[in-house]
Design a protein around this nucleic acid. Structure first.
Lengths: 210, 210
DNA sequence: GTCTATAGAGGGATAGAC
DNA sequence: GTCTATCCCTCTATAGAC
């Protein structure tokens, strides 16, 4: 990867973070990257294609970076704690914010949708793996579709990022409530055999008549 | 409220929905509203101020509209069902999508932040009221901060809206998982006195050493 | 209140020199 | 690969006629 191409990729992430999808133009990106504006089109064809590439590059390297920490998570509470840490760390570096901007742009711009979908899918896969590992043989996993839950958690994370941008105290409160939630599930995980059997039968009943 | 002002408010919502925050210009709004572009500035001063007004107007009337249905919700499962119905109905009319676009824009544009915060706060208040009513005297309410949970739910809803825009099948899966989740909590709500006492003591222990 | 016209900035994209 | 220069478009905002 040539130096200029990487500068443009990094400059795009930077611009999306600081100016949002509405302010991300070829000129703004080139300024952030410290290169000539015409190089956006020479190397990537169009602004949309550059955003696509930058989104994939950024999300890929960031997920790789967090992979080890995900793999060490041993409980739902720890997963929520990692989520909160990730939220804090990434607010500064801005990868979740970038994904939120691309997703917002992708609602109307078909060219951005694949990148947004792909970036989010990387996080979903990571979270799905952890959840599957944590919930194996638990009554919770019997009741809940884990891939679906991973998608809900990932989407919620993006929403919390946007909420944090307009009300950081409210977002803190939301994160705190979710951590209390994790405790609740862990308690359910750890029920004695009698309660567990009762829970299972209740869940079966609820699922058979949805 | 003059006819033109209302046309501009409606046109702004329409434009945010169909073109996103990046494509919402005075000209685009005026075209959608069927009025002259200069009237944006005559009536509202600037595009940002018009978006602010439109966001408040749209969210206010939509929350009013759903208020009765929220007040009739009798269980968490019904709340999730209403959430899913709301998501489906609003995908067409676009108020949640509009809020997502304003929140995305508000990350960088200080002028949009109050409107995004306000619109979301209306939904949060509604959900908080329902949750407080549903969880009164339940072991769940003892463990979880209800205002925080309402914020998490509302933010998650915005994230799911964005996710739906790039992967509607994945979003469906996420909603389904959350509905299964509600069943799980209802089961916990409905434990016998012995299990309930055990749950409480576990929660107390978990909270005392967080 | 509503219109036309326009200033002045910024946008995507390309041609062509180096 | 990189640069300047440029075309043509859209943008916000305002001035001024009606």
């Amino acid at each position: 990867m040539s130096d200029t191409k990487q500068k443009l990729l990094d400059g795009t992430v930077e611009t999306l973070r600081t100016k949002g999808i509405a302010g991300t133009s070829a000129r703004a990106i080139a300024t952030a990257a410290g290169v000539n504006q015409a190089l956006v089109f020479y190397h990537f064809g169009s602004v949309d294609q550059l955003i696509d590439a930058a989104c994939r590059d950024g999300a890929g390297s960031r997920v790789d970076e967090y992979h080890e920490r995900f793999s060490k998570v041993a409980s739902l509470r720890e997963l929520l704690e990692l989520g909160r840490a990730l939220h804090t760390e990434e607010s500064a570096r801005g990868n979740v914010a970038v994904m939120a901007q691309v997703l917002a742009g992708a609602q109307q711009d078909e060219a951005l949708a694949p990148a947004g979908r792909h970036a989010l899918s990387l996080w979903i896969t990571e979270i799905e793996t952890v959840l599957a590992r944590l919930l194996v043989r638990s009554p919770v996993a019997e009741a809940i579709d884990v891939p679906g839950l991973a998608r809900a958690v990932s989407a919620a994370f993006v929403g919390l990022e946007l909420y944090d941008g307009v009300d950081d105290r409210g977002a803190d409160q939301a994160f705190a409530a979710l951590e209390q939630f994790a405790v609740l599930i862990e308690v359910a995980e750890d029920l004695g055999p009698v309660a567990r059997r009762a829970l299972r039968s209740r869940l079966r009943k609820a699922r058979s008549k949805p």
